[in-house]
Design a protein around this nucleic acid. Structure first.
Lengths: 170, 170
DNA sequence: AATTTTATGTCAGTGATGTTGACTTTCCAA
DNA sequence: TTGGAAAGTCAACATCACTGACATAAAATT
């Protein structure tokens, strides 16, 4: 049933020995790690009555103030109907401000209010703390490898977008 | 261990120089990478009329044949009501078999049927292909680091469980 | 033997998040 | 002026998660 084919052996500039078992463990590590990754923000969000979708919207608006709805849609990879529901609640609750574009009045530019910034900061702080702890535990070389693999795992479109988003280290 | 390799990332003994910006980029990389990570299985599942919850159940049953419902609950971190809905549909569709325990008749031991194995394989193959591609692109040292950071990012309970899962064939 | 705990299953209700489809309003640009 | 892009809205629906309440059976404990 279980093959131990020659796919275990990858030849090339860097020789890579990867068994199916190692790849499967990698997948599972990704699954469990992502759970840990979202655990702290989820707790904070639950208190505020928001979910992960709100977190993502707040995060990327805080990261790129004045971003348009369309841009946010592309980053988040959801439908405008789904995003609209989230944005509406954030705007109603006074966490996000939507300003009609000056150059193109069809566009809405999104900004965090002071209250929105407060939530953003508390979420970011929590997530940063976990990232920092994980990085510290794993060591500096591990961090480089971590980032390289994550980038390689993205869909090409998202990788391009990711690398265009802000100044890259490494 | 070797603390002298990346001076731009290292401070003294075990302390990392990590700017908030670097940590934030790490978080975003995690977010985008996870989207890529689930993209291929999601496509396959959509054709079969299943979701990620089914994927996870099928995966871990395939990985540990004979596992109990309770064990699966702990691994997946969902409520029994949520898991039950998923398991019921998988059993009804003939992908999973539930056998009453011999030693403890309260327990149900879960197994994949031939059809369940087929779905599991197609999902696993897709995810493995992406993992393999990402690993190849990132290089062998990166893979080590990737795994180390992911493990450090897990909640302690899950990390223990993850590391205990290695040879768990029951 | 009686009671409690454990393991599982089920029903009902709720909420967050996502989808498609159909439509309107606004407004830039050919 | 007309076509189409951008944004918003509404309806309907699916998935997946949650809580709470309850049922059943069997193991464990008293």
């Amino acid at each position: 049933m279980n093959d131990t084919s020659d796919t275990d052996l990858m030849a090339g500039a860097g020789l890579l020995f990867l068994t199916d078992e190692q790849l499967m463990k990698g997948s599972e590590a990704m699954f469990f790690a992502y759970r840990g990754f979202t655990a702290d923000p989820d707790r904070i969000l639950a208190e505020s009555g928001y979910g992960r979708a709100h977190h993502r919207a707040v995060h990327f608006i805080g990261r790129s103030p004045g971003t348009t709805v369309n841009n946010l849609l592309a980053i988040l990879g959801v439908t405008k109907q789904s995003l609209n529901r989230v944005l509406r609640s954030l705007i109603e609750d006074g966490l996000v401000e939507s300003r009609v574009g000056t150059r193109d009045k069809r566009e809405r530019h999104l900004f965090l209010t002071e209250e929105g910034n407060k939530l953003d900061r508390s979420l970011t702080d929590a997530q940063r703390a976990r990232m920092r702890a994980a990085y510290s535990a794993a060591g500096p070389e591990a961090v480089q490898g971590f980032r390289k693999v994550l980038e390689a795992m993205m869909d090409p479109d998202m990788r391009r977008r990711f690398n265009r988003m802000k100044d890259n280290d490494k």
